[in-house]
Design a protein around this nucleic acid. Structure first.
Lengths: 134, 134
DNA sequence: ACGAGGTTAAGTGGAAGTGTTTAAATCCAT
DNA sequence: ATGGATTTAAACACTTCCACTTAACCTCGT
């Protein structure tokens, strides 16, 4: 039973790498070829990418249209807008202010610049008050 | 070559589950037993946990102690504290206010309640201005 | 106690990931 | 262009994961 996505081998190599060692040096250190280090490092990074993708998926499970956040809006005012729209529909948003901002930045980081909304953002919500952005 | 941590089967079940279907209903829908749905859902959630853990690892590759956020602090004041501490060390934090709040809530959600820090949080930083919490 | 929803255990076939080696192939800077 | 670093290809045992079944077992609320 695997309890971790990254193997100990992969973690060790990522650590050594972050410390500035070359693949050759790591190979000598743990007793294998540089080619092997290369492959292990590569699959480690691939695992990290998959991890990121999986969490993104969890954040964007199902929902229906709620409202639009106009370009130029202050990020900190977005939750208030969403709470009002949801209230109009008689649905209680299942996130607080902080949670909403988190969700937004996670889902559509490319639409955000510092505290400003760069591009228009579509907001969706389901009957449970679940929110997501696009 | 697998390009995703969660399989299509797992994603489908997580979606249906999020929509409120029971395991039995999903089983009938996609033609398998409820026990099977249970197991697939379970391993899907296990995968999500591993994804989270893997990203945590990446965030905590080498870094050094920065400061402590005391219990009871307002979440919105945390970035300011961190910026000041980092500045004292001559390092530029690689996150803005919003980014820091996101990172904090993602990393240690169990230490946060609404806008308040429930339990003391340790903050670490490396030479690149990368931040992580514990 | 009954039933609905959920969980667990044990086993199976097939698919994919892991760590390895060896050898050849790119990069990139001095 | 020579040498150091990195990447790729192909192949190999070995392990783990995935979806699935059957059957039994919790745990609620009514």
């Amino acid at each position: 039973m695997k309890d971790s996505l990254l193997t100990e081998r992969q973690k060790a190599i990522l650590r050594h790498r972050r410390q500035g060692l070359t693949q050759q040096q790591i190979g000598d250190l743990i007793g294998t070829s540089k080619a092997n280090i290369c492959i292990i490092e590569k699959s480690a990074l691939e695992n990290v990418r998959r991890a990121h993708e999986a969490l993104q998926f969890m954040y964007t499970l199902d929902a229906g249209f709620l409202c639009v956040i106009p370009s130029g809006a202050d990020l900190l005012t977005v939750p208030e807008t969403i709470f009002r729209e949801a209230s109009d529909r008689g649905v209680k948003v299942r996130y607080n202010t902080i949670g909403l901002i988190n969700r937004l930045c996670d889902s559509v980081p490319e639409h955000v610049k510092a505290r400003l909304v760069k591009d228009e953002i579509q907001v969706y919500m389901n009957d449970d008050g679940e929110i997501y952005f696009e």
